[in-house]
Write a protein that binds this DNA or RNA. Structure first.
Ligand code: MN
Ligand code: MN
Ligand code: ZN
Ligand code: ZN
Lengths: 153, 153
DNA sequence: CGCTCTAATGCTACAATGTTGCATCAATGC
DNA sequence: GCATTGATGCAACATTGTAGCATTAGAGCG
């Protein structure tokens, strides 16, 4: 798999894991690759389904812990979205902290890569800024012109 | 029971409820007044504790439904915050859509009344914008200079 | 005031999403 | 191969929120 001079579009899953001192396991590899392939942040449940589809046996808790580890290592990031479940996405250097759009009809989350998640607003004295999460709500292009309220879940 | 004269800084709870065609119940009144008195958004749990402290007997589900109704009516609004529970606050006309700060150490949420929750960024074609939620993360003034990680809950 | 209508409530169940503890397995280094 | 220990799998539990349904009580009215 090591193409001598290929553009490293992203680091391979193995490389990422090893670089962070973790053990290379099938679950971690599959999770990373699933996230890398996805254009938008995925929920734990969606990732689990992807692993199932790929024939990767895994446990619910293991998946939670794999995701937790990825976030701790800074390989992935977690966003809150409008629903009750976290969404996960690979943290890319370029579109580092971008905003997200949450469709209140279909529940889909879209990355707004060109909308920065805020500059550095003036915080009250003594506050330490770490990061910003900006989530826009509304209806996505697919849902936009459809019924007022359909599959809001 | 009847606190004869609460200072109606804003509309009184009764007025708000009646104006929206709802029935005036002890739970709704207490919830509204609790929210009005709070400087920051409160979780369902915190509101429940406030009702308990005030001797207002209530049911978990009733409280959920009271809050749901307040949001539907536009009396209150719900924000996502960094944790897994919704936060609720009275919707004031002045500080309509302001950003919030979530302290990742103590979990507190602070209203940033003067930080608007985004103007109207350019969305992809076909997307309908409804509202924006901007949550800044970091450490609040109280937690700022303390241990690296204490009550991260 | 007493009556009526039905919005709200209070249960009880249940669902969805995470977390904790602990025994077992297996990735890595030697 | 073997040992070490990080990672997994499983069961149990916690938190947060919903759904159904019988009962209560707010509001309008005579
Ligand atoms: Mn994104
Ligand atoms: Mn606020
Ligand atoms: Zn949509
Ligand atoms: Zn704090």
């Amino acid at each position: 798999m090591s193409s001598a001079h290929s553009h490293p579009v992203a680091a391979s899953a193995r490389e990422l894991i090893v670089a962070h001192g973790g053990r290379v396991t099938r679950t971690r590899i599959a999770v990373i690759e699933t996230l890398q392939r996805s254009a938008h942040p995925l929920s734990h449940d969606e990732i689990g389904a992807a692993l199932d589809a790929a024939g990767i046996v895994h446990d619910r808790v293991t998946l939670y812990r794999a995701l937790e580890w990825l976030v701790e290592q800074g390989i992935a990031q977690r966003i809150a979205g409008g629903e009750r479940a976290w969404r996960f996405e690979i943290r890319r250097e370029d579109a580092h902290r971008h905003a997200h759009f949450h469709c209140d009809r279909c529940g889909q989350i879209v990355c707004l890569d060109d909308v920065p998640a805020t500059p550095s607003p003036a915080l009250p004295a003594g506050f330490e800024f770490d990061r910003a999460e900006l989530v826009l709500h509304g209806a996505c292009a697919d849902c936009g012109r459809q019924g007022i309220k359909e599959g809001a879940r």
